[in-house]
Design a binder for these strands. Structure first.
Lengths: 174, 174
DNA sequence: TACACTATGTTATACTATAACAAGTCAAGA
DNA sequence: TCTTGACTTGTTATAGTATAACATAGTGTA
């Protein structure tokens, strides 16, 4: 059990209750939860959470922060998996397609999704002070976006919403 | 005067009236307008729209679509400017900071802003069918985003909002 | 077993971006 | 006018991110 303030040691993407994104909580529990649900989901969809894929997901969950593809790759190499970029990218792409991980474009990085399976429209809050990344519920944002797009006759399929700013801790410090 | 359907020949980022984003209009006029306003803005701010910077802005305006930094660089080289990446990146970064251009992260590309100076919170609609990119007004989206973030104690400074989907033309074709 | 399908490993390369320093330009004040 | 300092550009070099293409190996099924 690892209780900690997310912002201090950098980043927890979302976690069980979204409004705890920037607060202390039992991360180990929500991480193992996410893994369990990921496995159930894959079984349900008839897809395989193979060793590489599972390990990549675990790495992201353990890391507890956004990681670059090459950081993930380095971890894989150390554990005897293939050591070329496609190994990491393929697993990361798979996880993203399945909604088990998210890509943070601003950081060229990936983060585990903490509530896979639940239909959600995540938005990401990136702290410029401590580099923490929080996954926040973005239903309202996505609805607003859908309306704006609809007005132009544009049919939205997927969205990227990322905000740069200051987390509570860094804001207080400044 | 070049009247054209934006989507057909790919992309017009915004243009004068936002709701014309995916419709035919006189692009040459709004482009030269944007350039004029850019120059006025720079004068107002006591900053210099140097030859490289101006040329890069023109290239983006003429291109009428999102361009990669290296595409811009190739154009610069052909015109006798420096031929190394920093030449393009510096100009593009400057233009972005000044709100004269936008970065489309999903495409690793840049597009001219069609209404510089006006305070606006642009969102980008990227068509997966024809690669058109439209700059749409995103005030409502940004407000929703601000609220969601505020609820978590997060102070938003800058946002990236990009939607992938189908423009009217491609949607109709399908 | 043979087959089709999926996943992984590997080679090679393409694309995107920035650090660091040298050289030139420009405007303002001595 | 000359100097100074800030800013801009050019250049070298390298770092970081991502994918195409093909070979190999595992998986489930007829």
């Amino acid at each position: 059990m690892t209780d900690h303030p997310h912002v201090a040691d950098a980043v927890c993407p979302g976690c069980e209750t979204p409004d705890l994104a920037f607060q202390a909580h039992d991360h180990a529990a929500c991480a193992s939860d996410a893994l369990t649900r990921a496995e159930a989901l894959m079984a349900l969809r008839g897809l395989r959470l193979t060793p590489v894929r599972k390990r990549v997901l675990e790495i992201l969950l353990e890391a507890h922060q956004a990681m670059g593809a090459y950081d993930v790759l380095n971890r894989l190499v150390a554990e005897g998996f293939g050591n070329q970029p496609p190994v990491a990218y393929r697993a990361l792409d798979f996880l993203e397609e399945q909604g088990l991980a998210h890509r943070i474009r601003r950081l060229n990085a990936f983060a585990a999704c903490m509530h896979p399976g639940e239909s959600h429209a995540p938005i990401f809050l990136i702290c410029t002070g401590c580099n923490a990344v929080a996954e926040a519920p973005g239903a309202a944002v996505v609805i607003a976006l859908g309306k704006a797009a609809h007005g132009l006759g544009f049919a939205v399929e997927r969205v990227t919403v990322e905000a740069l700013g200051r987390c509570p801790t860094c804001e207080a410090a400044a």
